[in-house]
Write a protein that binds this DNA or RNA. Sequence first.
DNA 1: CAAGCGCTGAATGTATACATTGAGACCATG
DNA 2: CATGGTCTCAATGTATACATTCAGCGCTTG
Lengths: 241, 241
Amino acid sequence: MAADAAVQRATALTSADRAFETLRTQIVEGELAPGAPLAEVEQATRLGVSRTPVREAFARLIAAGLATERGPRTLVVSDIDADDVTALFDLRRALDEQAARLAAARAASDAPTAAAFTTLADRFRAVTSATLQADDAQRHGYYALVAEFDAALDAALTSSPYLASAIASTRVHLARVRRLARDDDARLAASAAEHGAIARAIADGDGERAAAATRLHLHEALTSIHAHLPRSGANRPKERA
Amino acid sequence: MAADAAVQRATALTSADRAFETLRTQIVEGELAPGAPLAEVEQATRLGVSRTPVREAFARLIAAGLATERGPRTLVVSDIDADDVTALFDLRRALDEQAARLAAARAASDAPTAAAFTTLADRFRAVTSATLQADDAQRHGYYALVAEFDAALDAALTSSPYLASAIASTRVHLARVRRLARDDDARLAASAAEHGAIARAIADGDGERAAAATRLHLHEALTSIHAHLPRSGANRPKERA
DNA sequence: CAAGCGCTGAATGTATACATTGAGACCATG
DNA sequence: CATGGTCTCAATGTATACATTCAGCGCTTG
């Protein structure tokens, strides 16, 4: 039955998978603070597995950019500061603009895609500062809507898997940034309007408008984040070779 | 002594590093053909190490996109066909245009950067179909010049490490594509001219011109590659879930 | 008392032994 | 003869034992 299949699939996850997921979540959620050392034996005992799956999980964390090798034999949780956010957005601008262009091109020749983004545009428009109070439930609901937008974008990028994969990797880091700089309700409402504009441009099949709307959104988001973030450590020398 | 230091650094490479480098090279060079299975025991005996470093090397190959998990317990060398090339260039366009823009911005305020790209522009201009015969030595020399250009771009992107890292990952795949579709000398000469135009625009600090020149170059390169490649298997259904 | 040397210990890097699962072949039976 | 089942085997997944290296600390000596 379906439950058995689900269990089967659940147990098909290896210990390495679980270790990676656990560590990834704890890093993104901030339970493992930036700079915290990642020792094999310590994490192995903590997660209740041997060192082998932990090693594999560490390798994936490094590949995802969530852990950094500091020195020859020391692994730490990646730091993330204002400069990193700027650098991350340099990449996001490149990826998201192109994604918006491609999604619009697809919507122009694929009715279901266009319909999906039309629906999303309407739902984003329904989110205003009036309906949105900055309590955690509302915030969570809004982020869920953004996640649906991201999923629609992914669905429109099936023919560009390299781009889709690169975008997916940036989303992990974005989740960390969100924890650092919590959006206020005004910013959330503005963000909803910007997302709506992007979705509408994609639905209309207007690639350049979609790219421009994306650039605008990213600029506003970056500005807001920097306003809410501790000053970039121009004094504190970054300890990254 | 310097030699000792070099040896020291060489021996500091772990078996996993060597295994990864060997496998990566052999995949890029085509010694390990696309679709070839990667078995732990087989590669371990072949490379003269145990399974543990091989496992780590496999994990890195997957992260780099050079190997793909087919089925729950089978790893194969990633395939690469005409559709993959198109998808790869969707990503490259996004990354390289942004890189050109950022490099130009840096050149506008950093004289050494501008000077470096001026020199590169001149060297690219010196490469013409007259001076370039399509023997392997010439081709290798030209690709070395392109590598210098890439290095200069990297140097100009120190403040955008995420972008630089994403670009570096695309270069690995580009090397594989080059093996599939060897450029003829006419294409190489045209490519040199296009690179020269990009370098000059960056040196002039003109970001939009640099981005446009990049887009043009990528379009021409993609067209040339597709002309030299076996037809995209629209009939052969791609076996990628 | 300070400086340099060596030692100890804990961590990673590697190898190998054990567990488990999946595929393929062979045999039995309808 | 085809089909289903079981059995074997080989490969991955995991755990653990061994090797190696580096950091911290104490001791010795000038």
